[in-house]
């Protein structure tokens, strides 16, 4: 599903050039659950952003479902993203002005799903995540665990083929963190490919494969199953 070859990304300010990704290569197969680990600043988030088509590489190749997307423009990336990729963030990134229902509905609005169909899908996913009773609340009225459930609901409501999770349990206590990992595992079991950046050894154990990064490169790979 994902095939990355010799990917490079540099950030430069006036004085310093920081190499975020240094000729990195990586492959993720359909249905896999991959964790990416490494110290702060090793380039994991940059990699995740590029995989998620939020950012573009300076050079190298990125094939998504056998299509070369490294040189896609903003509009094409956006198009591909909204139909194929769901995101789960450490800080949930819910829109404070929207209710739970509206937050989850948002990706469907952007993929131009009809209102009646949206209602059905949103309710379905809220039911599944056990937060249906909170549908009319605003994010700030929810606990961290509930907010992350909303965020995951939003990520999966379009049935994406790929979910990218950036430290999804980072802001949660262990009980809520476990719940979230459980949810991701279930999604993976149902066929969704998952790429997760994490600092937590415990979380990483839920995945099939752990890729360790340092200074913009993969340095080790640990297959768990």
């Amino acid at each position: 599903m994902i095939k990355i070859t010799d990917l490079e990304k540099k950030y430069s300010t006036e004085e310093v050039v920081t190499v975020a990704l240094n000729k990195l290569s990586l492959e993720v197969k359909k249905g896999e659950f991959v964790s990416i680990m490494g110290p702060s600043g090793c380039g994991k988030s940059t990699l995740l952003n590029i995989i998620g088509l939020l950012d573009d590489p300076d050079s190298g190749s990125y094939r998504f479902n056998d299509i070369e997307v490294a040189k896609f423009n903003e509009r094409k990336r956006s198009e591909l993203r909204k139909h194929n990729i769901g995101f789960v963030f450490q800080s949930f990134n819910l829109i404070d002005e929207l209710t739970v229902y509206e937050n989850v509905e948002l990706p469907l609005v952007y993929t131009k799903v009809k209102a009646s169909e949206r209602k059905k899908q949103v309710e379905q996913v809220l039911e599944k995540m056990g937060i249906m009773h909170r549908r009319n609340h605003f994010p700030q009225q929810l606990s961290g665990g509930q907010q992350q459930r909303v965020a995951i609901s939003r990520a999966v409501v379009t049935n994406p083929k790929l979910i990218l999770a950036d430290e999804p349990t980072g802001n949660l206590d262990s009980a809520n963190g476990n719940d979230v990992m459980q949810l991701l595992t279930e999604l993976n079991d149902q066929g969704t490919t998952i790429v997760m950046v994490t600092h937590s050894e415990h979380d990483a154990k839920f995945s099939h494969r752990i890729i360790s990064m340092l200074d913009g490169k993969t340095v080790a790979e640990n297959i768990l199953i």
């Binding site: 993203r81 995101f87 990134n93 829109i95 404070d96 990706p107 939003r154």
Partner: peptide, 10 residues
């Protein structure tokens, strides 16, 4: 933040 989320969501 809202802009970022919306853009991420497509």
């Amino acid at each position: 933040k809202e802009v970022g989320i919306r853009k991420t969501l497509g």
